[in-house]
Structure formats: structure tokens, C-alpha cells
């Protein structure tokens, strides 16, 4: 069943702050095999002009995708998550995420489309720091594949 178009433009309440830790960044950098010292060595990060270690560009997805759960699991929207695949992902950074950040995410449904029985959902996540400054925006396209005929 096609998703309700009236959900386009709907925003969800900001998430509780996520505190970015140095060791979580290190764990993530190791998981992607990336030895860039800006992720693990505060001195190296400072020499690049950052106040503390920074996170790899895609690190923030873990935070924005969890926030998008509000949308994905909204019973009124009725998305069949078991059929969802990740279509596109995009980020626009005002600055890199760094250790010590306390980040909140506000998720908004940007678009809902139906194509050949697939539901396509575009979610924008605005990530702000404790001062309310914009850090990064994440755009996530989710595709719920058409249900198979029984």
C-alpha cells in the first residue's frame, strides 16, 4: 500500500543529545580500517586546526539513522521496515563531528514517492551541537520494495 503523501514535510521532535566520545570514534575508525591520526590522536587533530579528535565523515550516520527510527517506526506512516533497503546517502558538513560534541537530530520527511510498487522515502536529519549550531545534515533515501504477490 502506498504511503500517505500528507506525511511529506512532517518533522519529528529533536532526539536526546548523543555525546561523541574519543573511544567511540577510535572504535569506528578501527572498524573501517582507517589509521588517519586525526581520528585518534588529539595532538594530530589540533595540528589540523581541530579542537579534539574528529570523526570519519560517515560516523554520524549511526546517530542520524537511529533518529530516523522515529520516522521508520511511526505506526501512522506504516512503512514495512522488513522490506527496506538503503537507496542513497548524502551528507553536507558545516564542520566535522568531533569528540565532546553533544548532538541532537531533527528528522523531517522530505519526500514520499511510489515507483513500480516500491515506496521511496527521503528523510533529512539536521544535526546540531549543544549551542544549537548546525554541524551536518544527512539525507537518507529508503526504498521499501514492493510486497511479493502471494
Amino acid at each position: 500500500m502506498a504511503l500517505d503523501q500528507s506525511f511529506v514535510g512532517r518533522s519529528y521532535p529533536p532526539t536526546a543529545p548523543y555525546e561523541v566520545g574519543r573511544e567511540k570514534i577510535r572504535e569506528f575508525a578501527e572498524a573501517i580500517g582507517d589509521a588517519n591520526p586525526a581520528y585518534t590522536d588529539p595532538g594530530a587533530a589540533r595540528r589540523l586546526g581541530h579542537p579534539d579528535v574528529i570523526a570519519p565523515p560517515t560516523f554520524v550516520f549511526a546517530i542520524t539513522f537511529k533518529a530516523a527510527g522515529q520516522v521508520v517506526e511511526d505506526p501512522q506512516l506504516g512503512l514495512d521496515y522488513s522490506r527496506v533497503v538503503h537507496g542513497d546517502q548524502r551528507f553536507a558538513y558545516a564542520r566535522p563531528v568531533r569528540a565532546g560534541d553533544r548532538l541532537t537530530v531533527t528528522s523531517t520527511i522530505e519526500a514520499i514517492k511510489s515507483l513500480a510498487g516500491n515506496d521511496i522515502l527521503d528523510i533529512r536529519g539536521e544535526v546540531r551541537d549543544e549551542a544549537g549550531e548546525h554541524v551536518v545534515t544527512a539525507w537518507t533515501k529508503l526504498v521499501a520494495r514492493a510486497a511479493e504477490e502471494d
Partner: peptide, 10 residues
């Protein structure tokens, strides 16, 4: 410097 990435999409 990974902090020099302004946009990234796939």
C-alpha cells in the same frame, strides 16, 4: 585532513 570534506553522497 578529513575535516576538509564539505559534502559527500553516494
Amino acid at each position: 585532513d578529513p575535516g576538509a570534506v564539505v559534502e559527500y553522497g553516494v
